[in-house]
Design a protein around this nucleic acid. Structure first.
Lengths: 211, 211
DNA sequence: GTCTATAAGCTGATAGAC
DNA sequence: GTCTATCAGCTTATAGAC
């Protein structure tokens, strides 16, 4: 029985250790991107910080691109989770406003990841289908809130449309992009750009008057 | 006298040749960025296309960063020139609309340069004061159009403000950013994003009603 | 003087043997 | 996990060609 336990636990312990190392690599990679830019990510630098030799990282990721891919997937998941948490228990325009606000806050708190997710600064890197699926789910969440807003009479029927989604994503991408490019270090809600967010939401709502 | 002419002309020819080479390097650099991304610019690749060895480029630019710097400066100048040409002979909202439209078109026709100008994908590269001065001039041009629009009663007094400038730049950065990230190859006026530009201008105008 | 080339130092990605 | 090796890129030093 103790043998059986050993047989089960020894691999488990190794597997756990391996997962922890992978987690550490990804955290260090995000830190490096934050300091040197998305395209400044270097496996050698990550290895130095982890205290191993660069080739050792290939035991965990098959290539630099694979690290980008995992960062992209997890970034999408966390961004979506941040939005969902803020929308919890809310509906319609209220949910939309809170979700996008939380998404903007997350983006400025994770600038490097946000750049990787929303601006594709590394053309050689193509996001995986899983990553894109999360992105599609985020759009679905927003679309649901729009539909609710239409149902409740907050917005006109035209707001339940792809066009409205594109308008919305354009507005939010504008705020985040301007804040990131022109005000490094300034958090969400401060500076000259992200405070225009409520105003943009008002403009959006005004573009789809009920009736 | 022929000696004197030789003394003057020989240096001129060399200087001209030098300027042509610099021009060629910058054009090749833009092509490389277009193919491999802004951060994918490589002096070795430029040298290959120019038919020289990489170290030779250092006779023309002291570093890779210096090439980025010159691309940034010229990009700002051309973007501003495109806007100004479209605004020629117009005033107020009409000038603003045409200028920003031309600016958007220029950005999608020179995606790599536009990314370099407006999204800072290379954190190690800081734009030169001259480059930033051109950027400031572009804002001044837009501000003038806003002032005209207020004077003529097209917009309310609040439109002649920094806040309005930030709102405007946020809107336009949103369209261009979304178009570049999500629709590579799709020109200005086509696709799902840049067609919302007129709508954004209408929303902007609605945000500053005269009265 | 000015351009170009070759050589070499340094860093990084990555494959392969141990 | 490592060490070794290859290859590409930026950059400097140096020497020859025009």
């Amino acid at each position: 029985m103790s043998v059986a336990r050993d047989e089960r636990q020894a691999p488990d312990r190794r597997a756990l250790r391996r997962l922890q190392t992978i987690e550490e690599i990804l955290e260090l990679a995000e830190a490096v991107m934050t300091e040197h830019g998305v395209s400044g990510l270097s496996l050698s630098e990550v290895a130095r910080r982890l205290g191993v030799q660069p080739p050792s990282l290939y035991k965990y990721f098959p290539s630099l691109g694979a690290v980008y891919e995992e960062l992209f997937l997890r970034g999408q998941q966390r961004h979506l989770a941040a939005m969902r948490a803020a929308m919890q228990g809310r509906t319609g325009l209220d949910a939309l406003h809170r979700g996008l606000d939380a998404g903007g806050r997350w983006a400025l708190e994770h600038r490097a990841l946000a750049q990787l997710l929303f601006w594709r600064p590394v053309p050689s890197f193509e996001p995986s289908p899983e990553g894109l699926a999360v992105s599609a789910e985020m759009i679905a969440v927003q679309r649901t809130a729009l539909r609710e807003a239409v149902s409740s009479g907050e917005l006109g029927a035209a707001a339940d449309s792809d066009e409205a989604i594109h308008l919305l994503s354009t507005l939010i991408a504008g705020v985040i992009g301007q804040a990131m490019a022109n005000e490094p270090g300034v958090p969400w809600g401060a500076g000259r750009f992200s405070p225009v967010f409520p105003r943009l939401m008002a403009l959006f709502a005004a573009a789809y008057p009920p009736g």
